[in-house]
Write a protein that binds this DNA or RNA. Structure first.
Length: 799
RNA sequence: GCGGAUAUGGCGGAAUUGGCAGACGCGCUAGACUUAGGAUCUAGUGGGGUAACUCGUGGGGGUUCAAGUCCCUUUAUCCGCACCA
């Protein structure tokens, strides 16, 4: 009888669904396991071949854990706010909600067809008012704690989307989503003070298990540096503060640079002799995005402020002040002391403008280039610092400046506060009322959710305000505080908002009183294993960790970190070896594979394709091998004989396979786990068949990978019950050891022979047997050394 | 430019602490079964050589009895960040 995958897979999916076998149990006394995959944005294109990779991987782990007796919470949901639905709405007038519902329906069908063991009772959707009520609630709590504030900010403005982008969303100087040009624009924005958590976001990385590269990217993004704030004097009497990581080089500061937007430039407008030139430069700089300003920086530009000079607080020397766009107003103090002797950018700038270059740390050749790698040098030309090491000089000069009140040690972070507003329709409304007399007034929590109104147009206003700004009856309200007429905030939240806490909702998805009960969170969190793409290892991970820490601080969640372990999967590329994209026409639709070869085959192939953490090109031809394997497992029924204990012929191989598969799953080596099962099948076939006990174990090991087939065979063989309800098999370490070993015999590291020996052979026996096997080659040669690797190898070093 | 990776047969990829390179799969070759095969089964399959043997993990050097694995150097590709003071 041929295996009808379409029929069989549907059958078991219905049975699992009907019997609710994957529903998390409401029994908090059981050992728990909470695996998490990143919930998808339900795009109009539907699922592509990349989606099932992480879903299947953690499904395998989840299924194994259930068989090991754990209460497992494995769930799916929809990160459904976002631009594509809104852009579609702008084009067609169809409400984003309608489009989103269609897409979710399609995604649900596709994902269900893969036989993933999600608990669908806990499905969530960020666009559901019952969900985003709590997203708004968290925002209000942040507002009350002063972590959400409004500020005039020079922001990235996408000329096409007409939205403000967080710095983090600007990729290569263009909009992350539409790739249009991004320019700078000053706008009043809601901000979240993530920088207040910067140090904790670094420190707490010590307590979690993340891949090294992920830890590195988090730290790099936060960008902690230790240095000093130093206040220079100016001939105008105004102090000019700079931040530097190299206070030791203060005596080498031969000029200063302030950013074109620096407020002192405006203050000095009357005394700057070349103010016209300065204004032209400011205008030009304002047109550039941060990216452009930094990109064109290979050719240094700038204008000296004629009429004002800076005064070095240590030496008293007067130094010229420039404006240049390579100094950003958003980092540090927006001003630097330039040390061309020891900073390459300053060096290039100094060369171009003919400024003096002074060596203050010995050991380099400042004629050729800046001497930047100078931590081990000795201070020179530095007055009181001469002769000191760099480290000692840092201490001394900082203390000296501090004593004079013109300097202090300072820790700085590259991380900037999170620009949280979007002038968009399809996002969570920000629950704030703007009152002429009371200012920004939060809604009462009882009045949440503040739902999205119907609008006539999904386009932002020409000024770039949200489409909500056009809804007078929605915008006009009364102040919750004083009752006078007031207006609602019309900005909405970014897509990151809903995804920053969704994993908490899974623990208690239907709670109407809290985002989740503390009891449920105490049981389920932290997440035991979170897998996601490398593209989310900075932004989403950082944002959600920040929110989690905030919620921890206000007592809503029981842990300070949300995820105990994070892993990352590699992307699946198209057959041509490049990223799948609609425009390239190399997108693989999993539906076709499911229809043609079955979900089990697709699951198996995606896990067998290669190292889980690395990118891998899709190969339709290779899918066949996995299908063939499953067909052979099915055909094994015919070769199966009664028997309730492993036979000597297979016992050792079975124990070894249990060990290998069990261990490989835990360390993401699904490809070698499958290879082990394939090899075991080959051995079984070679030996002419297997008995019931052996077949059962094989099916238990196969079940996480190909659950439909495993169930079907289990039932067809009349083994009783469902595979899903069985226990994960144990192995006996004693039985994983072979009776005989093959000892490799080498002379000078080259293999000359192989000898079969009993497993427990002593080193002496190994040497004796080895010698005998290579008698001729050893004849007449003196053995200088005998190297023995027990159970493996003997190597003779001869002269 | 900085940071992080990666490089193994025709292809995807295996390979505890350095210890049999190429597991497993695709493809290919031969055979079997078939009216037929883009099905299935069996055997073989890194290169060179009749063979003994020899060469082989991007290139070059080194450490070691022994290197895909460690060190130095170099090249290529990918990813991230980008004048961060």
């Amino acid at each position: 009888m041929k295996y009808n995958h379409a029929q069989v897979e549907k059958k078991w999916q219905d049975i699992w669904d009907e019997k609710q076998v994957f529903a998390a149990k409401q029994d908090y006394t059981l050992p728990k396991f909470y695996p998490l995959v990143e919930f998808p944005y339900p795009s109009g294109q539907g699922l592509h071949a990349g989606h099932p990779r992480p879903y299947t991987a953690l499904d395998i782990v989840a299924r194994k854990r259930r068989m090991q007796g754990y209460n497992v919470l494995y769930t799916m949901g929809w990160d459904a706010f976002g631009l594509p639905a809104e852009n579609y709405a702008m084009q067609t007038g169809v409400h984003p909600k309608v489009v989103t519902e269609q897409n979710v329906k399609r995604f649900t069908e596709q994902i269900k067809s893969l036989g993933l063991s999600f608990d669908w009772n806990r499905e969530i959707n960020t666009t559901d008012p019952a969900y985003y009520k709590w997203t708004q609630w968290i925002f209000l709590r942040m507002f009350h704690k002063g972590l959400a504030y409004k500020a005039q900010a020079a922001v990235n403005w996408c000329t096409s989307c007409k939205v403000v982008l967080a710095n983090e969303e600007v990729v290569g100087g263009t909009c992350e989503r539409c790739h249009s040009e991004v320019v700078r624009k000053v706008k009043s924005q809601w901000m979240l003070a993530i920088t207040k958590y910067a140090q904790r976001l670094i420190d707490d990385l010590d307590g979690v298990t993340y891949p090294e590269r992920v830890v590195a990217s988090q730290k790099h993004w936060i960008g902690r540096s230790e240095g000093a704030l130093i206040t220079f004097g100016t001939t105008q009497g105004d102090p000019l503060q700079v931040y530097t990581t190299r206070p030791d080089t203060l005596f080498g500061a031969t000029y200063m640079v302030v950013s074109p937007e620096h407020p002192l430039v405006e203050k000095w407008a009357g005394v700057i002799q070349n103010m016209d030139e300065v204004r032209d430069y400011q205008t030009a700089a304002a047109k550039k995005s941060d990216f452009e300003r930094t990109e064109v920086a290979k050719d240094k530009t700038g204008v000296q402020l004629l009429g004002v000079t800076g005064i070095n607080p240590a030496s008293g020397a007067e130094v010229p002040i420039f404006i240049s766009d390579y100094v950003l107003v958003s980092y540090g103090t927006g001003a630097i002391m330039a040390v061309p002797g020891h900073d390459q950018r300053d060096w290039e700038f100094a060369k171009k403008f003919g400024l003096p270059i002074v060596e203050v740390v010995s050991g380099g050749n400042i004629e050729e280039a800046a001497h930047t790698d100078c931590d081990t040098g000795v201070m020179v030309n530095s007055g009181m610092l001469d002769g000191l090491s760099v480290e000692a000089a840092k201490q001394k000069i900082t203390a000296f400046l501090q004593g004079k009140g013109v300097g202090e040690p300072k820790v700085n972070f590259k991380l900037r506060d999170w620009v949280f507003s979007r002038q968009r329709y399809w996002g969570e409304p920000i629950p704030i009322v703007i009152c002429d007399s009371c200012g920004f007034v939060p809604l009462d929590e009882k009045d949440l959710p503040l739902t999205l109104p119907q609008v006539e147009s999904y386009h932002p206003t020409d000024e770039g305000d949200s489409p909500l700004a056009g809804m007078d009856e929605w915008v006009n309200t009364t102040c919750p505080k004083c009752g006078q007429p007031a207006k609602r905030e019309t900005d909405t939240m970014p897509q990151w908002a809903g995804s920053s806490w969704y994993f908490l909702r899974y623990a208690d998805p239907h709670n109407t009183e809290q985002l989740a009960s503390l009891e449920a969170l105490k049981y389920w969190t932290p997440i035991d294993w979170y897998n996601g793409g490398m593209e989310h290892t900075t932004l989403h991970l950082l944002y959600s960790r920040f929110w989690h820490k905030f919620l921890f601080d206000i007592g809503v969640v029981p842990t300070s970190e949300p995820y105990s372990r994070r892993t990352s999967h590699g992307m699946i590329l198209g057959e041509d070896g490049v990223k799948m994209s609609k425009s390239r026409g190399n997108v693989i639709n999993p539906d076709e594979i499911v229809a043609e070869s079955g979900a089990d085959t697709l699951r198996l192939y995606e896990m067998f394709i290669g190292d889980f953490e690395k990118t891998a090109p899709w190969s339709t031809a290779s899918v066949k091998g996995c299908k063939r394997f499953l067909d052979r497992v099915w055909a094994l029924r015919e070769l199966c004989t009664p028997g309730d204990a492993y036979t000597p012929a297979l016992e050792s191989s079975i124990h070894k396979a249990i060990k290998k598969v069990s261990e490989d799953i835990e360390v993401l080596k699904f490809n070698t786990a499958i290879a082990t099962l394939m090899a075991l099948l080959n051995e079984v076939t070679e030996k002419g068949g297997l008995n019931h006990a052996e077949y059962k174990t094989f099916l238990l090991l196969l079940n996480p990978f190909a659950p439909h087939l495993a169930e079907e065979i289990w039932e067809a063989m009349g083994f009783g019950g469902m595979v899903t309800d069985q226990s994960w098999p144990d192995f006996d370490p004693q039985k994983c050891v072979d009776d005989t070993i093959e000892v490799v015999v080498q002379i000078l590291g080259k293999i000359k022979a192989r000898v079969q020996m009993p497993a427990g052979a002593s080193q002496e026996d190994m040497i004796a047997a080895a010698k005998e096997s290579v008698q001729e080659q050893l004849a007449g040669k003196a053995i200088a050394k005998e190297i023995v690797v027990p159970g493996k190898l003997v190597n003779f070093v001869v002269r």
